[in-house]
Structures are given as structure tokens and as C-alpha cells.
């Protein structure tokens, strides 16, 4: 069986710094794979190369066996690679419902007609309302995103990403800035996705990582230190050193 997402020998250099140093990684279909590492380890750089907003210097990225290394970010989304952002990225003047509606619209490819009425396209709004039904955001459907709380925006970002029916979902710190209760809700929401969507989870919240991840990869100074289960990673001496620093560490 082909892997959901495969990264082969990825390199990215910035002036004087190797941000991605020969990273190879395979995401098994249906699994939640966590990517952890100290600040500056190159997690965001890696995510941006996967999403296509940053071109790698060398190496390849395969989505379900298809080489997507040179594809435009928007094309990757249509091929089934969804993402959420560390700092929420939504349409601020649109309501919750409109944000979801435009995501359905984009997925259906109904985007170039100039003489129809978008508000009258039943299929789009039926799916939007079905997506909202039963979620915590249902009561906020008519609220403009700029008026939502941080936690609600995080929830909405996840919903918007799921509307695109991704095969692989890149989650860039979905817990960042969430309170304890909100984090628990998010963990539950992600738990429900296990088996349906392959997830690459970049996260600092270790509680969430250990609760969710089938496999964990540790990134340090741009290269992969190890990949293993939660137990293997938490008992690894090297990982502890990378996080806490060894004696002769400069900082």
C-alpha cells in the first residue's frame, strides 16, 4: 500500500542555516503522526514546504504516490492536502456559515460563473448547514469571524479544512492559545478523525501529542532525531537532551 504522504530527502537552506536537513518521513494512511521539536527546529519550515508555500532546495514530496514537489499550493489542496494555520487564517468579514460555504464552493470548483446567485445554490448551502449541525459553532453560524473568540476560530479552521475532504491534513499547532477545556474539546474532535484522515500534527502541547499520536517524529536542528511511539519517544535520552539541552549547550 502506498503511504498517504511521503517525504524523501528534503533539504532547505537559508543563508548559513540548514532549516531542513535530509528529512525523510512516511505518514501511514489513517494515522495521526505528530511532529515535535524545540523552537527553531524547523517544524514550520517543513510544514510550509509540504503545503507548497516554500520550495525545497532538493528532495521530493509524494501525496498518495503522486509527486507534488513542484505543484502550486492551491493545486495540492485540490489533490487532497488540507491544512490549518498556527495563527488562524479566515475570512474576517464573512460569517461562520459563509466561511464554510466558500470552502464547499471552492472544493466543488463552482468559482468562475458570473451570472448565477451564490446565495441560491442549494447544494452548497445544504452541505454547509449539514457540516455545522451538531457542532459548537452551530449557534454562531451568523456571526462574523472577526467577532469570534480565539477558540472558536481554531474550531472553525478545522471545520473549514475538513470541508475540503482532505486525504492528508497538516495541522500547525491546533492547540496554540487554547484554554484547558478548549484543548480537551480539540483533542476529542481530532480523535474522531482518526482512521478517516491522515494527520500530520505539529504541536507543542505534549499532553495532546501523547493522547493523539500513533507515531511521533522529533525534529532537532532541521533533521529528524527519531520516529517512534509515544513510549519510545518519552523514554529516549536523546530527545530529553534535545529539549532540555546538554551541559555544553550554548543556551
Amino acid at each position: 500500500m502506498t503511504a498517504a504522504l511521503e517525504i524523501r530527502n528534503l533539504f532547505k537552506h537559508f543563508a548559513g542555516l540548514t532549516a531542513t536537513d535530509n528529512v525523510s518521513l512516511t505518514l501511514k494512511t489513517g494515522q495521526i503522526h505528530a511532529l515535535i521539536g524545540p523552537n527553531g527546529a524547523g517544524k514550520s519550515t517543513l510544514i510550509n514546504q509540504l503545503a507548497g508555500t516554500l520550495p525545497p532546495d532538493s528532495g521530493q514530496i509524494f501525496l498518495e504516490g503522486q509527486d507534488i514537489t513542484l505543484r502550486h499550493p492551491a493545486e495540492r489542496v485540490l489533490l487532497g492536502l488540507g491544512r490549518t494555520f498556527q495563527v488562524t487564517n479566515l475570512l474576517g468579514e464573512f460569517t461562520v456559515r459563509e466561511n464554510l460555504g466558500i470552502a464547499v464552493q471552492a472544493r466543488c470548483g463552482r468559482t468562475l460563473r458570473i451570472l448565477d446567485r451564490i446565495s441560491g445554490v442549494r447544494t452548497i448551502w445544504d452541505e454547509t448547514d449539514a457540516t455545522l449541525a451538531g457542532t459548537a459553532l452551530e449557534a454562531r453560524a451568523g456571526t462574523v469571524v472577526d467577532d469570534l473568540s480565539h477558540g472558536e476560530r481554531k474550531q472553525l479552521e478545522l471545520l473549514v479544512a475538513l470541508v475540503g475532504k482532505p486525504k492528508v491534513l497538516l495541522l500547525d499547532e491546533p492547540m496554540a492559545g487554547l484554554g484547558h477545556a478548549e484543548s480537551q474539546d480539540m483533542i476529542q474532535a481530532l480523535e474522531k478523525l482518526r482512521g478517516q484522515v491522515t494527520i500530520l500534527l505539529v504541536e507543542h502541547d505534549m499532553e495532546a501529542v501523547f493522547a493523539l499520536a500513533d507515531e511521533i517524529s522529533v525534529l532537532v536542528y532541521g533533521s529528524l532525531l527519531m520516529t517512534g511511539t509515544a513510549d519510545e519517544v518519552s523514554s529516549s535520552k536523546e530527545v530529553r537532551e534535545a529539549y532540555l539541552g546538554s551541559e555544553d549547550s550554548p543556551c
Binding site: 487564517n89 475570512l91 464552493q105 471552492a106 472544493r107 451564490i118
Partner: peptide, 18 residues
């Protein structure tokens, strides 16, 4: 509708496949 989305946030629209 797509144009209104692009005006507000191009990055978001790219993430929607636009």
C-alpha cells in the same frame, strides 16, 4: 464570492484550493 474572499485573505483562499 470568490473575489470577496480573495480581497479579505489570499492565504486562506489558497488553502481552499483557489
Amino acid at each position: 464570492n470568490i473575489l470577496a474572499g480573495i480581497r479579505q485573505n489570499e492565504k486562506r483562499m489558497v488553502a481552499l484550493g483557489i
